[in-house]
């Protein structure tokens, strides 16, 4: 298995790690240990983003807990926790003795809490845009742009 790992320091002076794995599934992760978001949440979100963008496809194997922890230089318990959460959300599944894979038919679940979270985020965006002088039409156009960028999955 081909593994490439780069570390860089971005303009904010925070430490990012981007890991690429290649055997069918390439995955790009960018962990910022200084972010106020716990690391395991960053993994959960970014794996889902990778699935959404099609970088990871159904049936692709994810790095094992050990590989992931070494590649990102993070605690294996943190990786386990992220994988457990992803499994709970049915984004990935572990087949004993074989590894962890992206599920065949991952349907992002729209549970109530998450829905409220998204709504809150959008509200924040709308308010900020309002102060910047952006109108409703411009925001909608921007959203459409983003959808296109992500391949409308």
């Amino acid at each position: 298995m081909y593994i490439k790992c780069t570390s860089s320091t971005n303009t904010r002076g925070t430490h990012n790690t981007i890991a690429r794995f290649g055997d069918g599934g390439d995955i790009l992760l960018n962990i910022d240990a200084r972010s106020s978001k716990p690391i395991y949440e960053q993994i959960v979100e970014q794996v889902k983003e990778n699935i959404m963008k099609g970088i990871l496809q159904p049936g692709d194997r994810l790095p094992s807990v050990r590989e992931m922890s070494t590649l990102l230089t993070i605690n294996p318990n943190t990786v386990s926790k992220a994988y457990q959460e992803l499994e709970r959300e049915k984004a990935i599944e572990t087949i004993r003795g074989k590894g962890t894979f992206v599920t065949q038919n991952y349907q992002p679940k729209k549970d109530e809490d998450k829905l409220q979270e998204v709504r809150d985020l959008l509200k924040k965006v709308v308010i900020e845009s309002h102060y910047m002088g952006l109108g409703q039409a411009e925001i909608i156009a921007m959203l459409e742009d983003i959808y296109q960028e992500l391949g409308e999955r």
């Binding site: 962990i31 240990a33 050990r66 922890s69 230089t73 993070i74 605690n75 294996p76 318990n77």
Partner: peptide, 27 residues
Amino acid sequence: LLQEVEERDTTIFISSHHLSDLERICD
């Protein structure tokens, strides 16, 4: 150290003032 924890379930007690080192690895 991370491999030790993963493979052998070792318990690690670590002191440091290089906080950025700890930030990524501690429970």
